[in-house]
């Protein structure tokens, strides 16, 4: 490996900036462009301390469109720093390569990060917090901090890993069997936990009763449904919404309002 200017501390410092400001300057036009530039700006200054033009070009290069998931995205911070360093020291890196690398990695990494970190890990931590808190247990209020703690250390590790491995190894890692295995298992764990949470927290039942004949014997609809399949109504709700998301426009607001109106109408006529 060639000589290096950036130290481990430069990498972790850059990554810390990424962790702190990621979504703060997010804009509709170029999303995380400014936060990414800020993340590596100190390292760039160190690399280009005697080359003002090179610094300007580098700044402009990183103010281009960028958007990914922050935790796994720390890997990109590490790889880009390695590349910028190589470009300055050996001069054989085309600036296009750096831009293309960022654009190429951000999609797959956002996919992994959103389902693994945001979808699975965050949901599990918050749902554990909720289940403690609903019993009035103080752990429920403290547990959410486990999420930034996890994100902090995982991101820190990945930034250093990305810097040490370099471009080719990271590309290989993203496409490797190990990574496919991790993504696959994470989505299974995620969907499994969603099943558990759905079963525990989606609630719908009906007070409907039918009286048969003149004997006054009444049948509660909910009891019939429970003997058929417990939790049938909530399950129908969930997959009704899944169907809506898959087939119609993903309009969250319209969905929330519809559920509230259906709830009220149902309550008025006595279905719910």
């Amino acid at each position: 490996m060639s000589e290096r200017v950036l130290t481990k501390k430069d990498i972790t410092k850059s990554r810390f900036r990424w962790f702190i400001t990621l979504e703060l300057p997010n804009s509709f036009e170029r999303l995380q462009a400014v936060s990414f530039t800020y993340t590596i700006s100190a390292a760039l200054q160190k690399l280009y301390k005697d080359d003002k033009e090179g610094l300007k070009d580098a700044l402009k290069r990183h103010l281009e469109f960028f958007n990914t998931e922050g935790t796994i995205g720390s890997l990109i911070v590490g790889v880009v720093l390695a590349l910028e360093e190589k470009k300055k020291l050996e001069g054989d890196v085309d600036p296009e390569v750096i831009t293309n690398l960022k654009l190429g990695l951000m999609g797959p990494i956002a996919g992994i990060g959103d389902s693994l970190i945001q979808g699975t890990i965050k949901s599990i931590i918050l749902s554990l917090a909720a289940s403690f808190g609903l019993q009035g247990n103080i752990i429920g209020g403290l547990l959410p901090f486990l999420f930034p703690l996890t994100v902090y250390f995982v991101g820190r590790y990945l930034a250093i890993l990305g810097y040490n491995l370099g471009t080719e190894a990271v590309n290989k890692l993203i496409g490797s069997g190990l990574m496919t295995n991790i993504i696959n298992v994470a989505s299974i764990l995620g969907i499994f936990m969603m099943g558990a949470l759905s079963g525990s927290y989606v609630k719908l039942s009906t007070p409907l009763e039918f009286t048969i004949g003149s004997s006054g014997k009444s049948i509660a609809v909910q009891e019939v449904l429970d003997s058929l399949l417990p939790g049938l109504l909530p399950l129908l709700c969930i997959f009704g919404i899944v169907w809506y998301f898959k087939n119609k426009k993903q309009n969250y607001l319209l969905l929330v309002i519809s559920i509230m109106i259906i709830g009220m109408l149902g309550s008025l006529v006595g279905i719910f």
Binding site: G119, S123, G190, I191, M194, L197, S198, Y201, V202, K203, L204, P234, C237, I238, F239, I241, V242, Y244, F245, Y252, L255, V256, I259, M260, I262, G263, M264, G266, S267, F272
Partner: peptide, 15 residues
């Protein structure tokens, strides 16, 4: 009633 059903949206999004 709606409060009991609304969590379903988040789970459905994940599914």
């Amino acid at each position: 009633v709606a409060g009991g059903v609304l969590p379903a949206i988040g789970f459905a999004l994940m599914i």
